[in-house]
Write a protein that binds this DNA or RNA. Structure first.
Lengths: 352, 352
DNA sequence: CTCAAAATGAGTTGCGTACCTCAAAACACA
DNA sequence: TGTGTTTTGAGGTACGCAACTCATTTTGAG
C-alpha cells in the first residue's frame, strides 16, 4: 500500500531559560535581567544573551510565564455611551468570551463615555492610567485625545484603537477596517449592481465631519468617478445617523430625481433610508448598499430592499482587540493576518 | 467635567482547586479525581464536587494546567500531496504561526497523502493513531475514511475535518464553509452582475463526484432557477481542475453559444477558463465568478476578467483548526462564532 | 594597588495544576 | 464480628518562569 507521505514539523524543540543561560555562558539571573530589561548588565553581556536567544529562536513558555507573574491582567474597553447597536454587539461578543477570559485570568471592563466630546473622552482616558494593563478605545481623532492616548502609552499601558483610528497618536495597534477601501468597495458594488443603466446615485451619511464617514465617501466617489462615468453622484445628504431626518432628506431627493438608480448609505439611519425608498416604490429599481449586519439590515437584505451590506465583523473586532492587547502585554508577536479586520461583502445568500 | 461613565467587569473572581475542595468538603485529591474522570469516587461525591464547580463557575487556570502536564501536544495536518495552491497557503499560514505554536509548546506536523484515494487516506489516518493529540484532515466522504476517523476518535485523538467535511463520521468539528451557501452566493452574484440581460450561463467544475463541487453546483442552480428565470444554465463542464481541459471545453462551448452572459468556475483550472474567455474576446461581456483568492485570481480580478471570487480564508482555516484542536484537547469550550469560516465575496476593491 | 561601584552568580520562593504514592477511613458482605 | 474492597485524605514532586535577596566577582577610577 503505497503511502507516499512525507511529514514535516513546524516547531522548534522546547528549550528553557536554563539552556539559554548555559548557551550564553551566564547564570539564570542574568538571562532574567536581560529578558526583562532590568538594569545592571553590561552591554556586551546583553548582546551575548540576546544572541543565544536568537540563535535558538527561544520562546518563553507562555504558560509558565503567565503562572509565575501572579497578578491578573486588566483591560478596559472605552466605548460610546449611546445605544449604538454595533457597539452593543461588540459588548455582547466580549460577554461570550467570559469563560475564555477567566481561564486566562483576564479581567475586561467596559467603560462607557461620550466619545464624541474630545475633552470628556480625554478625561476618561486619563482616569484609567495606571489601573490597566491595556485599553481599547473607540476614539475621535482630536489633539486632546491624541495626547491622552500618548500619556497612557508612556505610562506603560498598551493601547489599541477600535473601529475608529487615531493614526497620529502612538497607539500600539488599530483594530478596524480601512474605510477608504470600504467606500471603494461600496462604489464598485453599486456600480456593478446598477448594470448598463445610467442615472444618478445618492449618498446618505451621518456627517462628513466624522472621519470614517468622510473616508468612505471619498473612496466611493473615487471609484464612481474613475469607473462609472455613466453615473452621476448627487451631493451627500447628512442624516446625522437619525432615521427621521434621513428619511425626509432622501424622500425629497427621490421626488426631485426620477432617475436615481443607486444609493449608498454610509452610516446608520438605515431604517429611515429604507422607508423613504420603499414608500417611493423604488426599492426594486435602486441598487442600495449600506453598512453593517444588524437585525434591520438582515431583514432588508432578505426582503431584497437592500442589495448588499459592507460589514466589519464586530465579534472579530472584539476578539482581535483582546488578543492584541494580550499579545502586547505578554511581549508576544502579533499575528497580523489574523488580527486584520476584513471588509466583508454581505448579500442575502452569505448572511452570517 | 461630567464624566458619566459606568464600568462593568466581565470576569469572575479567580478561585483555585483548593477553594473548590473546601467548598465541596473533600480533599484536593478527590477534586482532581473528579476533574479527570479518574475512578474510585462515589457517585454522590462526584455530584457534590461538580456542584461546587458549577456554583462557583470555576475555570481551571489554563497556564497552570498546561505547565503541570509537562509533555507537549502534537497535532497532525493531513493534506493533499499534489501542488494545490490553496493547500500550500494553509501550510504557509501554519508556518507563520511557528512562534505562537512554540510559545505554547505545540508541535504541528504536515502529513501529505493522496486524499482522493479512500484506501490510501484511511491507511494514512490509521498510522497516526496514538501518536497525536489531534488530527486535522482534508477528507473524502467515503466509508473507509469515515471508519478511520471514528477509530481515531475512539482512541482519544481529537479530529477536525478541514475544507471538506465527513458529516457522517464522529469528527469533533468541521472547519470550512457551507458549500451549498457558497454556490448560492455565486449564483446570486452572477445573476446580479449579468443585470437586465438574458442569456445562458456556463458552469465549469472539477468533477461532480467531489462533494464540495457538487454542493456548490446544487446551490448555484437553486438560485438560478428560483430567481433568474431569464438565465438558462448550460450542462456542467467537467474540467477535472486541469487548465488545458477546462480551456478546451469552455472554448468549444463559447463557440456554440453566442449568448453566454455568465460563467461560474466551481473549482480550479482557473487559468484555462480565463484563457478561453479572453481568447474569445468575451471577458468583458461575461459575468465571471470563481473561487479562492490566489496570485492568479487576484490578477484576473484586477484586470477585470474575473468579476468576483468566493473565498474561504485559508489563514483563518489554518488557525481555526489549530485553535479548535487545542481547545478540544484542553477541554475548553470552543468559540463557535470565532471558528466559523465565513463565505467571503472578494471583488477588486476589497482584495485582501 | 586600593576601594567602591558595577556586574554577575547562586539560590529561594511561589504561581495552580497534574500525577503519583501510601495510609487511613468508610463501606459491603458474610 | 471480621474480612476484603472501595473510597478518601494527606502529602509530595514537578513543570518553567518571575521576582527577589544576598554573596561574590569583576571592573574601573583614583
Amino acid at each position: 500500500m503505497a503511502q507516499e507521505s512525507y511529514s514535516d514539523t513546524l516547531t522548534a524543540t522546547a528549550l528553557t531559560l536554563k539552556d539559554i543561560a548555559r548557551e550564553a555562558g551566564v547564570s539564570l539571573a542574568t538571562v532574567d535581567r536581560v529578558l526583562h530589561n532590568r538594569p545592571g548588565v553590561r552591554p556586551d553581556t546583553v548582546r551575548r544573551v540576546k544572541e543565544a536567544i536568537e540563535r535558538n529562536s527561544f520562546q518563553p513558555h507562555v504558560a509558565a510565564a503567565e503562572l509565575a507573574r501572579g497578578r491578573a491582567r486588566r483591560f478596559a474597553f472605552v466605548m460610546p455611551s449611546g445605544p449604538n447597536p454595533f457597539m452593543q454587539q461588540i459588548e455582547a461578543y466580549l460577554g461570550e468570551m467570559s469563560a475564555w477570559l477567566s481561564a486566562r485570568r483576564l479581567a475586561v471592563e467596559m467603560v462607557a463615555t461620550d466619545v464624541f466630546d474630545p475633552s470628556v473622552l480625554a478625561a476618561s482616558l486619563e482616569t484609567l492610567s495606571g489601573d490597566y494593563d491595556g485599553v481599547a478605545v473607540v476614539a475621535l481623532d482630536h489633539p486632546g485625545v491624541r495626547a491622552a492616548i500618548n500619556d497612557l502609552v508612556d505610562a506603560g499601558t498598551k493601547v489599541v484603537t477600535l473601529v475608529s483610528d487615531v493614526p497620529s497618536s502612538r497607539r500600539h495597534h488599530y483594530v478596524g477596517i480601512d474605510n477608504i477601501a470600504a467606500g471603494r468597495t461600496a462604489g464598485a458594488l453599486v456600480g456593478r449592481l446598477v448594470g448598463q443603466r445610467s442615472g444618478k446615485v445618492a449618498i446618505v451619511a451621518g456627517s462628513q465631519g466624522l472621519r470614517d464617514h468622510a473616508e468612505r465617501i471619498f473612496g466611493f466617489n473615487q471609484v464612481m468617478a474613475s469607473e462609472f462615468p455613466g453615473l452621476t453622484v448627487l451631493p451627500v445628504l447628512e442624516g446625522r445617523d437619525e432615521d427621521e431626518r434621513s428619511e425626509q432628506l432622501l424622500a425629497r431627493l427621490l421626488g426631485r430625481h426620477a432617475d436615481i438608480v443607486g444609493l449608498y448609505n454610509v452610516g446608520a439611519g438605515t431604517q429611515g433610508v429604507a422607508k423613504a425608498l420603499s414608500d417611493a416604490g423604488r426599492d426594486k429599481q435602486v441598487a442600495f448598499v449600506g453598512h453593517d449586519v444588524t437585525a434591520l439590515t438582515r431583514r432588508l437584505l432578505l426582503q431584497g430592499v437592500m442589495d448588499a451590506a459592507i460589514s466589519q465583523n464586530p465579534g472579530h473586532e472584539a476578539r482581535a482587540a483582546v488578543r492584541v492587547l494580550l499579545a502586547l502585554a505578554r511581549g508576544e508577536p502579533i499575528l497580523r493576518e489574523q488580527e486584520k479586520i476584513r471588509i466583508d461583502i454581505v448579500m442575502r445568500d452569505n448572511l452570517p
